[in-house]
Amino acid sequence: MKVLVIYTHPNHQSLSYAFLQKVIQGSKDNSHITEVDVLDLYAEGFDPVLVFNENKRRRDMHADPALAKYREQLLWADKIVFVYPIWWGRPPAMLMGYIDKMFASGFAYKETGGLLPEGLLKGKSAVCVSTMQGPALYPLFWLNNAHKVLMRKALLQYVGIRKVTFFEFGSMESPKGKHEMKLNKVYRYFSTVAR
């Protein structure tokens, strides 16, 4: 199994970065995982801004040569892992910009004329590892689970990725946030997952 980790946080001293390290460590300790590639969107200088004009059309985004290496990463991966904080109830704008550019029609899905398109990333699985300041049940009761609906239904299932696992950790700025326990939970998952 080949794992692509998409990390989205500007600070390498952050708790999100600590979760990234556990994902990498667990993956390296797992005999089912043969390769791990990390895309650090901030360190990469990824440009999340969409530009459409007379030279760049939305319908051509799936073939934009500037995004070729990122498309290759997504096609290469069996499992796509997103590591990010939840800000304002959703992933950071940087990650949303990556999603806008990369999960384009003609690459991640194609229109069929029916109610839903055909997902072109079938057979892959995904994991979302996210942290937030508020309590863990805040998104469920206050935001109607908007974050999970966005990532699972509006994005991943739309492009054909049916198996989606969430690690959504709350109270992460509290000294009682049980950080080590949560970090170890992520490590255990990645050190044992078989698909």
Rank of each mutant, 00 (worst) to 15 (best):
R90I: 02
P85Q: 10
M102S: 07
Q157R: 15
A126M: 09
M151P: 05
Y109G: 02
A93T: 01
K124R: 08
F141E: 12
F107M: 10
C128S: 15
P92S: 09
Q133M: 13
A146T: 07
A136V: 13
W88F: 13
A108D: 00
G113W: 11
W88G: 03
G114E: 06
V149A: 10
K153M: 13
A104N: 05
L156V: 11
T131A: 03
Y98C: 12
A154W: 03
G89I: 01
N145C: 11
G89F: 03
A93Q: 07
A126C: 10
L115K: 15
L116T: 15
S130M: 00
L116F: 14
H147N: 08
L116P: 10
V129R: 05
S125F: 11
C128H: 07
P117D: 03
L140Q: 13
A126G: 03
W142I: 15
L137V: 12
A93M: 05
T112G: 05
R90K: 10
N144V: 12
V129F: 11
L120E: 02
L150N: 01
V149N: 11
P85K: 02
M102A: 08
G123C: 04
L155T: 07
G119H: 04
A146E: 06
S105F: 12
L140P: 09
N144K: 13
R90V: 04
G106A: 04
A136M: 09
W87E: 02
L143G: 09
V129A: 06
E118Y: 04
A136R: 12
Q157Y: 13
S130Y: 01
G97P: 04
L150A: 08
K101E: 08
H147Y: 04
K122E: 15
P135N: 15
G89P: 00
K153R: 13
Y98D: 12
M151I: 11
F103E: 05
Y158Q: 11
L150G: 05
F141A: 06
L121F: 09
G134T: 10
L155N: 00
G113A: 09
K110V: 10
G97R: 02
H147V: 10
A93Y: 02
F107H: 09
P135V: 14
P139Y: 11
E118V: 08
M96A: 14
A154C: 12
P92F: 01
P139I: 12
M96E: 09
L120I: 10
G89L: 05
N145P: 08
A136C: 07
